[in-house]
Write a protein that binds this DNA or RNA. Structure first.
Length: 422
RNA sequence: CGGGGUGUGGUGUAACGGCUAACAUUCCUGUUUUGGGAACAGGCGACUCAGGGUUCGAAUCCCUGCACCCCGACCA
């Protein structure tokens, strides 16, 4: 678990839920996340992550981390402030070339900018550590805040000017070695999307490549709120981005002409960089025969905060959010209804017992709040399991457990509950 | 960056160029209530985005700026 605390009393939580969303938010993800107190808007495309939202973000981050570690990625963390000189060497500093920089100046003189991506500084770092073919291949990644001066921020946390991104970079001897790793990343990405609950809607999508490869690959999640248009071949389970949807490409991929147009959210992007950066910045290695060659690179991005928004867009219902178990801020939302008899006491006992067992639980211990409001809050916050302690449940012999995805719950004994959440 | 729209208590809305800017919700006090956003009573809270102008009089009309939303373009 990413957090040392696995419990929270709702009466102590400083955030509150709201019936109405602010008028200046149209997107479903921002509306629900703000109503639930997960995030707070600072400016267009700039959001704070409040306790509940941060827990979700960290859970997603942890899943991504596990999958990156599984394919051998080594985590590091690079700065936001960028050295202009490096970017000039790759011709990506000039506003004419890259138009979404946030640039500023040092008091001591000289320019700097806030990182939009990290190929340049990372390649520079590696030139200090990579000398021999024996040092390759390897890959590194980070979770880092990216800054992009978007012409138009939109769609809540899905297209921000400041956002959390996981960027992975691979360093290989040659293209073949690169492709081997590239395929591993594809699989790791599939695992990630499946674990965070959007796998069934997410497709590998062919998109425009670069000088070193015909295509790059995106992972696109079907959603009417997406910015991209893709053509999905249901049978093959792959898609083509509109930007490269041409007869040539279709022929290339060798699949029948049976596509359906969809809007989709780009949740991941992987591509072959080749030697573009290694050549420009002098990252090369000595081969087996005393020769020298530039390192062959790839880069692989996932917008962690965008994933959070995507989950809300794709999985919520008219009552609120439905968090998949692995990303939910808590596993159990415990509600005590009324303060008569020993309801309060029993609820507290159950809370302590769940916490003791290491189960993440948000306890709605608020007094003077009606049952209806607690239920509405539970639906809005979208925690997977709702457990109700009330006079009625106690009379029926225990605690009512209901999944967020189901209409009805059932009353279970303490033993059964422990069995369920083991 | 082109086009369209909007700025009014914390939030959501209302108010003909004319009374002390209204209603709901939130919040606070009290009583009651506790299985689907409860009831009653009382109360706090707004220089109507900023600056200028027109007018006897501006939330309302005009100008400038700023902010935000939407469509499009852009998106290493």
């Amino acid at each position: 678990m990413p957090f040392s605390t696995n419990r929270m009393l709702q009466s102590k939580l400083f955030t509150k839920t709201r019936k109405e969303a602010p008028a200046d938010e149209q997107s479903k993800n921002a509306e629900l996340l703000i109503r639930g107190g997960f995030i707070h808007k600072e400016m267009a495309g700039v959001y704070s992550y409040l306790p509940l939202g941060l827990r979700v973000l960290k859970n997603i981050e942890e899943i991504v981390r596990e999958e990156m570690t599984a394919i051998g990625g080594q985590e590091l963390l690079m700065p936001a402030l960028q050295d202009k000189v490096l970017w000039e060497r790759t011709d990506r500093w000039d506003d004419e070339k890259v138009d979404n920089w946030f640039k500023t100046k040092f008091k001591s003189g000289g320019d700097t900018g806030l990182g939009i991506t990290h190929e340049e500084p990372l390649t520079q770092v590696m030139s200090e550590y990579v000398q021999s073919y024996k040092d390759l291949p390897f890959s590194v990644y980070q979770f880092q805040t990216k800054f992009r001066n978007e012409m138009r921020a939109k769609s809540g946390i899905m297209r921000g000017r400041e956002f959390l991104m996981k960027d992975l970079y691979s360093f290989s001897r040659d293209e073949n070695e690169h492709i081997e790793f590239y395929e591993k990343v594809k699989q790791a990405y599939k695992n990630i999307f499946s674990r965070i609950g959007i796998g069934h809607l997410t497709y590998l999508t062919f998109a425009s490549g670069g000088i070193f490869s015909k295509f790059s690959h995106e992972f696109q999640t079907l959603s009417s709120s997406g910015e991209d248009t893709i053509y999905l071949h249901e049978k093959e389970g792959i898609a083509i981005n509109k930007e490269v949807f041409t007869p040539d490409v279709k022929k290339d991929l060798g699949i029948s002409d049976d596509f359906t147009e969809y809007r989709a959210i780009e949740v991941g992007n992987i591509f072959t960089l080749g030697t573009r950066f290694s050549e420009a910045l002098g990252l090369s290695y000595k081969d087996e025969k005393d020769g020298s060659a530039p390192v062959f690179m790839g880069s692989y991005g996932i917008g962690v905060s965008r994933l959070m928004g995507t989950i809300v867009e794709v999985l919520s219902d008219d009552k609120g959010i439905i968090w998949p178990e692995e990303v939910a801020p808590f596993r159990v939302h415990l509600l005590s209804l009324g303060a008569k008899n020993d309801v309060t006491e029993k609820a507290r006992e159950l809370y302590d017992a769940l916490v003791e067992k290491g189960i993440d639980v948000l306890f709605d211990d608020r007094e003077d709040i009606g049952a209806g409001e607690k239920f509405a809050d539970a639906d809005l916050l979208g925690i997977p399991y709702r457990v109700v302690v009330s006079e009625r449940s106690l009379k029926d012999g225990g605690y009512e457990v209901k999944k967020r995805t189901e209409e009805k719950g059932e009353v279970l004994s303490l033993e059964k509950i422990f069995e369920m959440f083991r």
